[in-house]
Design a binder for these strands. Structure first.
Lengths: 239, 239
DNA sequence: CCCTGTCTGTGCGGTAACGAACATAGCGCG
DNA sequence: CGCGCTATGTTCGTTACCGCACAGACAGGG
């Protein structure tokens, strides 16, 4: 786990001023994040924030009837627990590990100490939050107007950007839950993508073969989000 | 315009510390906001923020092909231009006046001066932003899972909460643009609501007759958003 | 090596919303 | 007072996705 024990794998941590990162470093706990693990429940007060490195976490809203929809994806470009510094302490959504891996955990009060200095750390976190807002907005637009095919492409690309490989370990069932659609729909859409030679998958592992091809089939939503992350965080969202 | 010339009609302004409000007061310009007026365009740098009092403004994303979808509604409970203090200066969405009325305009640098003090004003604005995030998230969920009927109810209620009457001046065409659906769909859904005795409408004016009835037909999304606004801002979103 | 569970594929009827075309109806202005 | 514009109503075929049911297929453990 040598290479993976490096906080700078998380782009937000890497973008912190060196002094702050040093100050944090002894408090950053490397944490293994397992598939399906819930980092926080709706309404729950936060004790820690998380900085994913090799994992992906979804912000998911689960409805009364049990069906769900993903609101945003957070990976090595971001942080989980923004409601901490936004002042609400909690959100109505749930944070679920969508792709197993590692991340760093930091006690809430330590982050808040830095945030409250109203310096570069605060501004970085707020810019990240704005990028996240864009992602959420675009999710809303995409849910309204785009086909399952397009959405699947967008989703694959967003997930891929948050890892450092072109493999995703996730079943179609899981993807369906994230997109808030039927599993069969994902099977069909993924089948088309595979036939078109863009991806390859088998039993829970998806490999992207032709990334430009995927981008061509995705709706504009992907590009909008990517561009905004790049603009606001000036490091590429891509691993 | 006597009664309408009172900044405290905007709940966010009203919640400011008295000293700050006093400091702002000579700089708050009462502004008439006309139907369809664009307060800011995607990507445009902000010179002012807006505090609606009797108007409603939609955050709208307009796609390449011209169709659109509303991301959030801002009325007398909020502020337009959060990307200013979030640090991005602009957003990919557009702010369009959805219901004509008044609001106050404040120069960006004046707001930033207060925000940068990292005191109660900043915390208030951030809590508002988190509430707005909830609204956006729930829009995404609603777009995914709920019927046009349910969405129309949610939307009417959200709009109503941001005015001080039970009348809305807007055509079905306009509502369709906001919801990102066909006008005919709105006609049909609104027809059902009228038949059920919940609303009454004619030529661009909608009157809500049975509000509890509307709430009963709305999806859970409305309640989630309302509750979160109340929780985070501790003043009711309702006019 | 088979058995079991998980993952993926497929077919079917049902439905909500779509796109387009067109019909009515109220309002305002000349 | 009627003409024209805007708002609303209605129809029809099409489509994307749903819910359900079930069939194959691959993997790992006993």
């Amino acid at each position: 786990m040598d290479a993976s024990d490096n906080p700078q794998q998380n782009h937000l941590l890497a973008a912190l001023p060196a002094t702050v990162l040093k100050h944090f470093s002894s408090h950053l706990e490397l944490t293994s994040m397992h598939l399906g693990e819930v980092l926080y429940e709706p309404g729950a007060q936060l004790r820690h924030v998380y900085f994913p490195t090799t994992s992906i976490v979804s912000l998911l809203y689960v409805m009364e009837n049990g069906s769900s929809a993903e609101i945003a994806i957070v990976g090595n470009e971001g942080i989980l627990g923004i409601s901490l510094f936004m002042g609400g302490q909690s959100t109505p959504s749930r944070a679920v590990v969508q792709s197993a891996g590692f991340g760093y955990r930091l006690r809430a009060n330590l982050l808040m100490q830095e945030f409250n200095k109203a310096g570069p750390v605060m501004h970085l976190l707020l810019r990240y939050t704005q990028a996240l807002i864009t992602q959420m907005s675009q999710t809303a637009v995409c849910n309204r107007h785009h086909s399952l095919n397009q959405q699947l492409c967008r989703w694959l690309l967003l997930s891929l950007d948050r890892l450092s490989s072109n493999n995703l370990d996730m079943t179609q069932e899981l993807i369906a839950n994230m997109l808030g659609v039927r599993r069969e729909g994902v099977t069909e859409a993924a089948g088309k993508l595979q036939q078109a030679g863009l991806i390859h998958y088998s039993r829970g592992r998806i490999t992207v073969v032709d990334r430009p091809g995927l981008e061509a089939q995705a709706c504009e939503c992907y590009a909008v989000v990517k561009k905004e992350f790049d603009r606001l965080l000036s490091f590429p969202a891509t691993g």
